[in-house]
Design a protein around this nucleic acid. Sequence first.
DNA 1: CTGTTAGCGCCTTCAC
DNA 2: GTGAAGGCGCTAACAG
Lengths: 333, 333
Amino acid sequence: MKHDAAPGKITIADVARLAGVSKAVASRALSPEPRPVSADKRERVLAAAAELGFRVNLLAQSLTTKTVNLVAVVVNHIHDLSDLDLFDLLIAETQATGKQVILLRVGSVAKVEEFLRQGVAYHVDAALVFSDFADAATVRQMFRTNHVIMLNGRHDRLSPAIMPDEAQGIGEAVADAAAHGVTAAALVTGRSTSLVEQARIASYRKAFKRHGITLTKSIQGDYSYLSGHAAAAEFGEGNFPGAIFCTSDAMAMGILDVHRMQFPGDRPGRFRLYGFDNLSLLDFDAYPIASIGYDKSTFVSETVRMISHPESFEAGRPPVLIPTHFIPRATAS
Amino acid sequence: MKHDAAPGKITIADVARLAGVSKAVASRALSPEPRPVSADKRERVLAAAAELGFRVNLLAQSLTTKTVNLVAVVVNHIHDLSDLDLFDLLIAETQATGKQVILLRVGSVAKVEEFLRQGVAYHVDAALVFSDFADAATVRQMFRTNHVIMLNGRHDRLSPAIMPDEAQGIGEAVADAAAHGVTAAALVTGRSTSLVEQARIASYRKAFKRHGITLTKSIQGDYSYLSGHAAAAEFGEGNFPGAIFCTSDAMAMGILDVHRMQFPGDRPGRFRLYGFDNLSLLDFDAYPIASIGYDKSTFVSETVRMISHPESFEAGRPPVLIPTHFIPRATAS
DNA sequence: CTGTTAGCGCCTTCAC
DNA sequence: GTGAAGGCGCTAACAG
């Protein structure tokens, strides 16, 4: 029944001819929207399309409709998507709205500029920006679209933004430490060139001050497990503050592992340990690290809403904030 | 200098007009390929394009060139890409060839059929299939392309395939166990509906036989950490075989955690433990699990080669095999 | 080397 | 309800 032979070769003209109608009628019959076509012709068209194995060419379609049903997701590396659950949900929901996801890995600032020069980019309906290598204006130019949704904190007044309200969860975590008698803490951070990271660090400092906790040590890592390992070395024998706060779960995992090695059986350990991101990995027994996270489905539904209803955004609107919360686990419970 | 105002509104006609040349000349000047244009006109065109902030509409372009520079990657869930390093490399290399990646999450067999019916798919240049929900013929129809690269073992003679040669690494792992005096082993598997998994299981059985190892227990999981947890329960007190082989690292992690809980300090443990996939997570101290893996860059470069040189494949060719190897770690060293 | 012409596949007027 | 005609943005083919 199906003609596998020449994929992509069958056009709407073929369908129309086989159904004995004009191209216009075929187009209407094939449209998902309700359009004026008589019932019998619609059926003939549908039958002919099935018979031929016809599939509209979305590209040609978008040339007239001005919508490609393509959403770009811009990341530095795939590891930006440390949260696979979030990403999985995002793709599923985006697809559910009839749009496809095109994944753009920029890797470096230089790469952004290269994309800009070479114009290696589609005219997408919207762009979702996780990468902190690009600001809103750059991305708008990259994709020739004004519909850029910033998730990296580098938005401007022309582009909508969605971001976790990190201050809230950080406040809760620090309050937890204070409530357990912690008076001195260390902070292990990521690259402080990122705006998000800067804000995060500021939130911790503010919360420490609010709760009368002294920041005794601040160590710079790069979010990775290995940098957590390295950071752990900075705490000499019995030289631990009451709590260690990390701006990524991976770093907290590195610290936990080094500490376990040094002091076997010392679990939950001689300090309270707090991560950040609430990776699903933390539900594995080996890494019962208290963390800070937010409701992923809220984040995703806000994002998808923004994709499908761009008109709901007005220039100058403040970012949509997703509340974060402290999630206690064995390292701080 | 740049006109941010109307993104995507500037066409090659505008550029041609400003440069005082015909559309055809502008098109040639803007082409990455060397095409006949006088030097001064080329410069005027380039200047005009920069001035206007022009970017070609790849969609319109592809309508005539018949190539969209779009590669589809088909997965069940994002978690299929358990190996983020592999995926990251794949995207980077694909982009380096000037093509973009469109990510299609199918989630279920039903979803495949829905895509097929609704035709929610592009006419891509090539499709890479990780998902085991779809066979080659289905994917060819989904994307209206004959260029489908199967990575899930469900290839036919019309489509090229690339797959790890799992038998090799499995043989090495089982040989390692035998060399350490193991005579009885258990096998923890994933869904056996997958062809790849069936082949994997068969390889283990064959290797066991070859080395005179008795398979005392076979437990079915679903590749997940939790199913590893559940599987661990099946080994009662002191009821351990010499070795436990898992067809995924995540299951091995679950087993290791349960075992550590039951017998604290019993490390490396009373049995040899082997995972599968060689996740980068295994380099974290908490999960020093011996595993089976392959060289990612080889896999990726073969895949990308197949994308850019489809003509190099002839119907009926056997799959490209990427050798796998045993990677010893604390649980089996 | 250059400009004109003619589509690519589809959808949308606009008369009928 | 229907069909013919025109055009989306671009490039290939053709004369010059």
